[in-house]
């Protein structure tokens, strides 16, 4: 896990250069969000300007911004809670009491992830329409829960797998009953794993932009769809787009930074740790 012992100035310079280049679009957007609309489209670009909070104020004053943000929060957190509630028992059962079917079950779950969303767009759209679930948060919560369930099960499974099984036996010998074993012994051990799994799930649900664009219009539209509305020619206000975008990505950027290590495990189904 250690880096090479000598510091390597050339490699370091290039690494920093690459990092700054990669981050530049985000930085540039952040900067533009504090400009006036005229400054935002100025060429040559305005590097020295008086920062204004006008754009943020404008976006927040739009009565519907908060409803978009609220939709994002409800849909991503709701689907995460549901997915974790479903996945914890499944992952627990398979990690601690594996049967000869466990491997097959896990691989099958992984393979459901390979069904391209667009392949089932038509029936899901028509079904949602027929049961009046188009443009509702319920439909997005259901879809996101099931969409991410395989990743959540897999990630929890890899965490549970690393928890020593002997600890259950030890607590039994010490006289703990089942609920004591689960809540006092097991839970504290697996809680960090559950937390980082939930974090990854929130990130994935927050940024999902296929179902949210296709199944919502206004009432249930999350921030991904709100930002998409800026693509209309009449909506091309760069400074406001930047301010809305900054607010939409800021919380998830922080979540991402926190969970970068567990992310690898989750997104490769435990193949790379």
């Amino acid at each position: 896990m250690s880096a090479r012992n000598r510091t390597q100035p050339i490699a370091g310079t290039f690494a920093w250069l690459a990092a700054l280049l990669m981050f530049f679009p985000i930085f540039w957007m952040f900067l533009a969000s504090f400009k006036t609309e005229v400054e935002a489209i100025a060429t040559p670009p305005e590097l020295i300007f008086t920062p204004t909070l006008e754009n943020y104020r404008d976006i927040l004053q739009r009565a519907d911004y908060l409803s978009f943000a609220l939709n994002s929060v409800i849909v991503s957190f709701g689907s995460t809670v549901l997915a974790v509630l479903l996945a914890v028992p499944a992952a627990f059962g398979m990690a601690f009491y594996p049967t000869e079917r466990t491997r097959g079950t896990l691989l099958w779950m992984l393979s459901t992830k390979m069904l391209p969303p667009v392949g089932v767009l038509v029936p899901i759209y028509l079904f949602a329409r027929d049961v009046d679930l188009l443009d509702t948060r319920t439909s997005l919560v259901i879809i996101y829960t099931l969409m991410n369930l395989p990743i959540v099960v897999w990630m929890l499974f890899t965490f549970f797998k690393e928890t020593p099984k002997a600890i259950i036996e030890a607590s039994r010998i010490d006289g703990a009953n089942v609920s004591q074993t689960i809540f006092s012994v097991l839970l504290p051990l697996v809680l960090p794993g559950i937390a980082s799994t939930a974090l990854l799930n929130i990130i994935l649900a927050w940024n999902e932009a296929f179902w949210s664009l296709n199944l919502t219009a206004h009432n249930a539209a999350p921030l991904t769809a709100f930002i998409a509305s800026f693509s209309a020619p009449e909506g091309l206000f760069w400074a406001k787009l930047s301010a809305a975008s900054t607010m939409a990505i800021a919380p998830i950027l922080v979540f991402g930074w926190i969970s970068q290590r567990q992310l690898v495990r989750g997104l490769t189904f435990g193949a790379v740790k």
């Binding site: 787009l241 990505i249 991402g256």
Partner: peptide, 28 residues
Amino acid sequence: ETRFPGRSIARVLMISPFFVMPTVSALI
């Protein structure tokens, strides 16, 4: 993988685009 000053900050900057929602990255 080499050692250089501010490596963990550079890495955070490096991976940030992955957490930007697709509609934001595309429009920016």
